[in-house]
């Protein structure tokens, strides 16, 4: 039995080069997934004492604890509310803009595309601080709208670039054929263009959703004290709760992301996911 774990045997089975590749892969995986694995262990540990790696007892004790804290539960609901609102509003704003950018070649088009990138090029905290100053003036600090605006800014580039390339990949003739058949511009967009560009848009929405769930700096700055989303609560949890409770909470934070990605792989396929990423 132990012979399976003997590195010397592995070394000779795989050959020298392959062995080091293998070793590298293992280290790599440990580096990336180690913390996640550890979080998993902690989250389901009823009893855990520091120097041990494996918990002494497994169970759902800390899950019950976390879910009985009203502030934490409220933050979960709030996070999802913001995530859905972000997707919804950003689609209404960004999809038409993306369509215009994809279809019409007006002077300054490149500059507009580039300007979305610019927002992501500066340190976020600087942008949030200057936004906060403006928000103070117009009474948006500590409001739902204020936080939503932060989340929208966050996903703007994603929600414009990906759908724009998706729209671009819909042949113009298909839109023209719809006009020809008697559909006006709006119907054509709704029945022909949108469904054809949907995979790319869905990928963008997915990332916007995940981005919104994870947004913390700006939300912390603008939303406090009324709007405390999961990642904002996380700061407090790290300080005030035992690490096992923190693990549970962070799993709750990660779970939707994992679930969404898995669903996507299943129903949309990695190919479309990659295609959605192709910039037009």
């Amino acid at each position: 039995m132990m012979s399976f774990l003997n590195p010397k045997r592995w070394f000779y089975t795989l050959g020298k080069k392959r062995f080091f590749e293998f070793l590298f892969l293992v280290l790599f995986l440990l580096f990336f997934y180690g913390p996640l694995l550890y979080t998993f262990l902690l989250a389901f540990a009823n009893k855990y004492e520091f120097p041990n790696i494996i918990p002494a007892e497994f169970g759902f004790k800390w899950w019950g604890y976390v879910l009985s804290q009203p502030t934490l539960v409220r933050s979960i609901g709030l996070s999802f509310l913001f995530a859905f609102a972000t997707i919804f509003v950003s689609m209404i704003i960004c999809l038409p803009a993306a369509y215009v950018l994809a279809r019409f070649n007006f002077p300054g088009r490149k500059a507009v595309m580039f300007s979305f990138l610019l927002g992501n090029a500066f340190p976020k905290i600087g942008i949030y601080t200057s936004m906060a100053i403006v928000f103070y003036r117009i009474n948006l600090m500590g409001t739902f709208t204020g936080v939503l605006l932060i989340h929208l800014i966050e996903c703007m580039m994603m929600m414009i670039w990906l759908p724009a390339s998706a729209f671009k990949n819909v042949p113009v003739q298909q839109e023209e054929a719809a006009r020809d058949a008697g559909a006006g511009p709006l119907r054509t967009f709704w029945y022909i263009t949108l469904p054809n560009a949907w995979p790319g848009i869905a990928v963008a929405a997915l990332f916007a959703f995940i981005g919104s769930l994870g947004e913390n700096t700006g939300t912390l700055l603008v939303g406090l004290p009324y709007y405390r989303t999961m990642p904002v609560e996380m700061y407090g949890v790290i300080l005030d709760y035992p690490s096992t409770a923190g693990a549970v909470f962070s799993l709750i934070l990660i779970a939707p992301n994992l679930l969404l990605l898995l669903l996507f792989r299943k129903y949309v396929g990695g190919e479309t996911l990659a295609r959605g990423y192709k910039m037009g």
Partner: peptide
């Protein structure tokens, strides 16, 4: 009504 050279049908 027009039939285009290609990409006529809605996929």
């Amino acid at each position: 009504a027009m039939v285009f050279q290609s990409y006529n049908l809605w996929p």
